[in-house]
Design a protein around this nucleic acid. Sequence first.
DNA 1: AAAAATAAAGTAAGTACTCACTAAAATACA
DNA 2: TGTATTTTAGTGAGTACTTACTTTATTTTT
Lengths: 194, 194
Amino acid sequence: MHRIINPPNFVSNYSLYGKEPVTDKKENILLAALQLFSNEGYNVVPTSKIAKQAGVSEGLIFKHFDNKKGLLDAIMEDAELRVNQVFAPVLFETDPIKTISKIIETPFNIREEEYNYWRLQFKLKWETEYYNPQKMKPIIDKLQWAFSELGYKDPQNEAELLSQIVESVSVNILREGLKSQLKFKSFLQQKYKV
Amino acid sequence: MHRIINPPNFVSNYSLYGKEPVTDKKENILLAALQLFSNEGYNVVPTSKIAKQAGVSEGLIFKHFDNKKGLLDAIMEDAELRVNQVFAPVLFETDPIKTISKIIETPFNIREEEYNYWRLQFKLKWETEYYNPQKMKPIIDKLQWAFSELGYKDPQNEAELLSQIVESVSVNILREGLKSQLKFKSFLQQKYKV
DNA sequence: AAAAATAAAGTAAGTACTCACTAAAATACA
DNA sequence: TGTATTTTAGTGAGTACTTACTTTATTTTT
């Protein structure tokens, strides 16, 4: 006879920054909520549905995250880290042409398993609060520097424009898939001569 | 002694296409709902709040619109007409350069009292269903023709790009006000030589 | 008075969140 | 090392409250 041991606080993996151990059930809640929030919307998804999909009692959500908003906060913290990671190569680049080139490539480097994080970010833009227009500031500053170096007439507006284009392409990829935007990618590369 | 007469079914104005007379209370409901839906979101605004702001009993909403979704439908019908009206000048233009010029000006011609209609449109893009990517098709086709006439290399992608830019500018105007985008407007005009 | 329009009160199905409780793990300690 | 104690993860039934929508009553118009 075997004894099936299933410790409730078994540590399955660690969060992105390894701050604290995450039990498998807690992880299940986070994943279920991410999927539901990003596809259906924060306001329309009841906590009961999250619990069901996570295979967990509803009460556990509140044990771990205090309230529904706390659950969203936890997810968004993760989301922000992942989004920053994708933009990081642009910030570290020292060559202006490569900077432009890399920002154009950015939306195409989003890993498919992270689409939901991005979708949630864009969605929450329209559910107030989580929207922070200053979030892209470092990127825009970097682009402005690059355009300046390359002798563009109006680097400020050029930077603003390109960052908007990149955002549009990101949204399009999320909606219609990566392949649909590939021709647009080379179009942009030609346009900016990179 | 005066009798204050306040006829309940007083006809205050007509809908955009003059199909049917709209009583003032029905109009009040539509206006209150538009304001609340566009600023706070369809899902988070209860019908009781709409009734309160419209100065109307809650039941009246259901008399006029059957259900909450019906109220949203009525508003969105109006919204679509108003959005189309703003884009109309582009579709009627026969000169390619003026076509480009007019599409750039489009977001700046949105009347401030119609901001809420636009805001609602963008918001619902992320609450599924009401989003229809084909809605901009006629505009993009027109732009493609214009760029083609002007000898651009890749009119298809140029049209797609400009329509995305116009959408971005629209969103920025809604968020940060018209003035904040004026310098961007002349920047675009220079870029497209119009 | 009949019919239409409006208001008020009510309903049933959710909703986020709580609470009393169980079981297992980690810790304290003899 | 073995036993008692505390801490933690987890459950699921319940609670107060909100929601969209209905029904009944009241007022207004003809």
